[in-house]
Amino acid sequence: MTTSQIDPALLDLARRGLTGERRAIARLITFVENRSPAAPALMHELTPHTGRAHVIGITGAPGSGKSTLTNELIKEYRRQDKTVGVVAVDPTSTLTGGAVLGDRIRMLENYQDAGVFIRSMATRGQLGGLAAMTNDVVRVLDACGKDIIIVETVGVGQDEVDVAKAAHTTILVEVPGMGDDIQAIKAGVLEIADLLVINKADREGVEKLDLYLKAMLNLAPRKPWRVPILKTIAAQGAGIPELTRKIDEHLAFLKSSGEYEKRERARLRDELLSRVREEISRRILRRELQAGGLAELVNQLENRQLDLNEAALQLLAQTRL
């Protein structure tokens, strides 16, 4: 696709977004989030401008203080004169398809600052702690000039580790006094963390949690980046400059070790494969609408005339991808 083929209104929208115009950015995100038919053309325009932002993921149990911490990080980065984009994800109700997006309520202080753009997203059925289109929304913010992009996941339990693929630096937020033995920290989530933050350090049990986390980290195989444990009181803004310093150190480590490119490539490969997977499903189902045939294959599965592999291969062959 060349730029001249694109609807001029869309091209104009992309260009205004690239200059940082907030309403255009908001609209671009809507197109992308909803997988609008216009989204591919827009992403084509925006993609060359991506790859500059430092993407920081924040994950942790519900109520651990992710949004409050994000708010403090926004303020600290603004003091450092960096522009900030935030993507805050909350869960969609599986029963009704609706969602209450409540993270923004903790980030209201920044409403008058044109250097800050905050967008709430619902998971819309996606498991893993993020919304399906989160990465593309991050790309929009990246292209539109945000230096730092913070991705807040839904409050996670254990298996929601997608954020590590979306972010360069992943922060896991823990809180003391939750009963360390039944800590919500499962190995899977701990493994993806580049930084551990003990938030609500004004509460009791900080040292106990600290020891516990150190022990957990010691169990993990040694890696060149030593995962630091930081203490914050997000509600009072304490410990934030130290946190951003560690985040910067982590980025420097990624770049100097070659890990940055490695992660970037792994992520892109992953995204490419999942986009192709989606597209294959889409084409199969579209063909199904036009020509049918799926029911017949299911019949044959039901009668044990075909096994699953055979049926899958036939379906792929019929679809002529």
């Binding site: 694109i6 609807d7 209104a9 869309l10 929208l13 205004r16 309403r23 255009a24 609209r27 809507t30 197109f31 909803n34 609008s36 038919p37 216009a38 989204a39 591919p40 053309a41 827009l42």
Partner: peptide, 8 residues
């Protein structure tokens, strides 16, 4: 801006 319903 154009609306999300516009076709590219």
């Amino acid at each position: 801006a154009p609306t999300a319903g516009d076709q590219g």
